[in-house]
Amino acid sequence: MSDTPRVLFWRHGRTAWNVENRFQGQTDIDLDPIGHAQARRAGELLASMNPDVIVASDLRRAADTAGYLSRALGVRVEYDKGLRERFGGSWQGLTGVELSERWPAEHARMDIPDGEDIAEVGDRMHAAVERGLGKTPPGGLLVVVSHGAALRVGIARMLGISDEQREVLGPISNCCWSVIQRRRDHWRLMEHNAASLPEPVVLSDDA
């Protein structure tokens, strides 16, 4: 087995606020029935990859999503507050339309006046992933269960993409995932916004 580590970043299942396009932030919203079904299906798929470590945000929508993988795999979930969604201040609970009407310029830039700075999100996400990797055996697979915005910032940090350029990574849909793998001294994006297991790829990119 290769001693090259992998990290799978998994977004939580659907919530009622996702359907209503409300800014969730760190508001502790439950999965809706479809979100539970998404998490059950994805958990069964991901269990076949035999992850070694599962770490999750302690917010219910991520913790419950992780629970489906935990039960399918027989590996317990460890919770890390560093994996929480970006704190949205006064934006939390408002719809995208309401945000565009009240803060048009700020909403276009996702610049939350009284919310958490993107750099702070990146710092804590990076630190949480490194803590998880510290518990993952050589060549193992770490699963990180978190939230849409936080995951994109975290993946960008791991890939060496600046916070300002994080939008080069497209959004991650509910209960979809992205995978990075270590190669020599850097991380590479192997999958993004996936919902099925990949076919093996055999190639030499040194050719």
Score class of each variant (00 low, 15 high):
S2Y: 03
P5I: 05
P5A: 01
L8K: 01
L8M: 14
R11A: 10
R11D: 01
G13L: 03
R14N: 02
R14Y: 00
R14Q: 14
A16Y: 01
A16I: 04
A16L: 13
V19C: 02
V19R: 05
R22I: 09
R22H: 04
F23K: 05
F23C: 05
F23R: 06
Q24A: 03
Q24H: 03
G25C: 04
Q26V: 12
Q26G: 05
I29L: 01
D30I: 00
D30N: 07
L31M: 00
I34P: 00
H36R: 03
H36A: 07
A37V: 04
R40K: 10
A42L: 09
G43I: 03
L45I: 06
M49H: 01
M49V: 05
V53I: 15
V55P: 02
R61S: 02
D64A: 07
D64K: 01
T65P: 10
G67Q: 01
Y68W: 12
L69T: 02
L69Q: 06
R71W: 05
V75N: 04
V75I: 13
R76L: 08
R76W: 04
Y79M: 14
D80G: 11
D80N: 15
K81M: 11
L83W: 06
E85D: 08
G88P: 07
G88L: 11
G89K: 14
G89N: 09
T95K: 08
G96E: 05
G96H: 09
V97Y: 09
V97A: 13
V97D: 13
E101W: 01
E101K: 07
R102T: 05
W103P: 00
P104D: 06
A105D: 15
E106L: 06
E106W: 06
E106T: 08
E106D: 15
H107P: 00
A108F: 14
M110W: 10
D111T: 03
I112C: 12
P113R: 09
D114M: 06
G115N: 07
D117E: 08
A119V: 03
E120G: 08
G122W: 07
R124C: 05
R124G: 07
H126N: 13
A127R: 05
A128D: 05
A128T: 10
A128M: 08
E130V: 15
R131A: 15
K135N: 11
P137E: 03
P137A: 07
G140C: 05
S146T: 09
H147I: 11
G148S: 14
A150C: 15
A150L: 15
A150E: 05
R152Q: 11
R152T: 03
G154N: 10
R157T: 09
M158R: 12
L159W: 04
G160P: 02
G160W: 12
D163R: 04
D163F: 12
D163N: 14
D163I: 12
Q165I: 13
Q165S: 15
R166A: 13
V168D: 14
L169H: 06
P171G: 06
I172V: 15
I172Q: 06
S173I: 04
S173K: 10
N174Q: 14
C175V: 02
W177P: 00
S178Y: 05
V179R: 11
I180S: 02
Q181V: 12
R182F: 07
R183F: 12
R184H: 13
R184F: 14
D185G: 08
H186V: 12
L189E: 11
L189R: 10
E191D: 15
E191T: 09
A194W: 02
A195M: 00
A195P: 00
S196K: 07
L197P: 03
P198D: 13
P198N: 13
P198Y: 07
A207S: 01
